[in-house]
Design a binder for these strands. Structure first.
Lengths: 160, 160
DNA sequence: TCGATTTAATTCGTGTACGAAGTAATCGAG
DNA sequence: CTCGATTACTTCGTACACGAATTAAATCGA
């Protein structure tokens, strides 16, 4: 990792940092949640449902920043587990409304409290954190607006 | 996403930001690389191999920050594609040495150049970027050292 | 009103990711 | 030397994640 750090452009380093940190968080949450049937993506879903109330799959997709086709199987499992309910909307039979259950609420409460304590132990400076968050938000907006340049393979052979 | 942003602790927001930005980068790279058989993880592998030369799977695992069992199938596909070679080490038959091929090198050159240009168009401030990178590195170190608090389900029922 | 379009969700195929278990080669203590 | 660790890699099972294709419901327009 040090070698990568010392030979790479800042832009590429940003991607790399985000990439590795994301998986660090993932492992952290996975360990913390191992007994609960929860994962980080499911945690995000419960948070969104608690904050904004019952909503359709596509609303949830927008709020959680996850595609609807990723959500579908995940929601099915969460409903089987009992953390959420799923029901066709009467007004529009295309929509599926998702809501958190009391059990899901209770899991979320426990998870949030314990996770918050765990992260406080990390002693992260609030000012630097909020600066970072601002920067990351701007970066994401820019990346999502940008249309990616295409890398081609014209004239590439096994030899060159 | 705004609702999540305005109702959540900074710690949780950091995870969420990293989580969403990582996928934004992933989609950006996927679009850029669509013609090349490359993905972001494979790009990282090629970078590591170029910078540090041929190495074993476990060395690569450390440098790229990916578990060896994730690497294994990935390397197999990259070798079939022709971007790398894989060979048992003569000195130690347990080890598999991986090296970038000229073709892999050429793909990497093209990808790196074009990606760098694409990111320059994003107009990211270098100072803020390097501050952010420093912060993210510290955060990752802390998260990886921390032992995650366990969230339990004691006494949880369908009702509560 | 009724077919064409649009929208909402799901299914499908592919590609990471990781812990755990398995296999084979090497090492190390007795 | 030799047999029980240890190490290196792979396989397996599970869980996201996304684009593309699909299905079904609602809506729009002639």
């Amino acid at each position: 990792m040090d070698k990568i750090a010392s030979h790479t452009s800042l832009h590429q380093l940003l991607c790399f940092n985000i990439y590795t940190l994301n998986r660090s968080f993932g492992r952290y949450y996975q360990a913390a949640f191992s007994e609960t049937g929860l994962t980080y993506p499911k945690f995000v879903i419960l948070m969104a449902l608690e904050m904004a109330g019952p909503m359709s799959v596509s609303d949830l997709s927008n709020r959680a920043g996850v595609e609807a086709n990723t959500l579908s199987p995940l929601l099915k499992k969460m409903a089987e587990f009992g953390a959420i309910t799923r029901a066709r909307a009467e007004t529009d039979e295309r929509r599926v409304d998702v809501a958190i259950t009391p059990m899901g609420q209770e899991i979320l409460n426990r998870a949030r409290t314990i996770i918050a304590k765990g992260f406080e132990a990390l002693q992260i400076d609030p000012k630097r954190l909020s600066d970072t968050l601002e920067f990351l938000n701007e970066a994401r907006d820019k990346v999502e607006k940008a249309d990616p340049p295409k890398v081609g393979l014209d004239g590439l052979t096994e030899q060159s």
